[in-house]
Amino acid sequence: MTADHIVRFENVQKSYDGESLVVKNLNLNVERGEFLTMLGPSGSGKTTCLMMLAGFEPATHGEIFLNEQPINNVPPHKRGIGMVFQNYALFPHMTVAENLAFPLEVRKLPKADVEAKVKRALEMVQLPEFGGRRPAQLSGGQQQRVAVARALVFEPDLVLMDEPLGALDKNLREEMQYEIKHIHDNLGVSVVYVTHDQSEALTMSNRVAVFDDGVIQQLAAPDVLYEEPVNAFVAYFIGENNRLLGTVREVTGDYCMVELDGGGGVVKALAINIGGVGSRTTLSLRPERVVLSPAEGAVPNVLTGTVKELIYLGDHIRTRMTVSGNDEFIVKVPNAHGHASLKAGDTVQLGWVAEDSRALDAPQDGGPA
């Protein structure tokens, strides 16, 4: 590996009971200076990976490298990694300044250096006047800023964050997303971040590793994950997505023709992750890519839908429809004068270009739809 990688997971597996694997043969490089998010539902293996990297859980198989040094047998406190937890983990009997000084004093830094670094860390998280307060005297957002400052104060090469914003309300959570992103941009420190919140991952990350069932389903930049999901799980875990089930009837180059269930007709889509002719497939289509009442010949795929519900959301109208047997087909209609007359019960045509629909793997029996 090159020096551009700060972390390397090499064939890492983890089992708690000796039988089932929570993490299955993970191979992953974290690039120096990047913000990489491990994203996935509960039980997908993302937090276990973070705990193995931190040293709180041993790997069952494989090796983890930090700065090209194997660290499987290095205790957590000797790995030099900053950690931020959801519950802040601040010492309640210490002031904010004492909390920040603690990791520096453990490293036996001179007192003058400790004071300078604590002062700089408080300024970094915009809390320069709060050094004398105790954690209990701070709001949740302020406590989380202190936790971030404490993880960064000893200038580690790597900071791990485990659902750090999970306890905050929506507005504060969004504010802290930008705070942490800006701190990362300014310092250039490497960050590995764990969350189950896909909007958080898209907002903050250089790359996102989408986990499911102990395996990385896709590793890519946020815009690639959203625009080019490689399978049905990623398509429906990242952002809102319409799902239409059907059967592949023809494959020509990069495209395929799919006969939709429910008598919806045949549509053209990008052939991304399908079997041969006759195989089942899931079409992935973003709500904002669907056009209502398209002009004749404007788009190749045209279906008929029935409006079930209209929800006014200011800049757009979220329109729920029945399309090809799917009662949860969503169209995001821009809030323009032309759609003011749309109402529940209306039957309308809708369409999209072939490049906006991706033919992916079909759901397994009993699996996520």
Rank of each mutant, 00 (worst) to 15 (best):
D169F: 07
H184F: 00
Q198G: 11
E163V: 04
D197C: 12
L187A: 05
A147C: 13
Q144A: 13
L187M: 14
Q143K: 15
N171Y: 05
Q143P: 12
A147I: 10
E175Y: 06
G140P: 09
L168T: 05
A201W: 03
N171V: 07
Y178N: 04
P156Y: 04
M176Q: 03
Q142E: 15
L160T: 01
P156S: 08
M161F: 12
R145L: 09
T195I: 08
A167T: 05
I180T: 06
L152W: 05
D185R: 15
Y193V: 07
R150I: 05
R173H: 06
M176P: 04
Y178Q: 13
V192S: 05
L138Q: 11
T203I: 11
V194W: 11
S139T: 13
S199C: 01
Q177C: 03
S139Q: 10
G141I: 12
A167S: 06
R145A: 11
G166H: 02
L158D: 07
H184I: 00
E175C: 00
R145P: 10
E155W: 05
L168H: 09
Q144E: 15
V146F: 13
E200P: 07
Q143S: 12
R150S: 06
S139H: 14
S190F: 00
G188Y: 03
P156D: 09
S190G: 06
Q144L: 12
A167I: 02
V194N: 01
L172H: 03
E179F: 15
M161I: 02
H184N: 08
S139K: 13
S190A: 11
I180E: 02
L165W: 00
L158G: 07
E200S: 12
D185V: 08
M176F: 12
V194A: 09
K170T: 14
E155P: 02
I183R: 01
D162G: 06
T195A: 14
L172R: 00
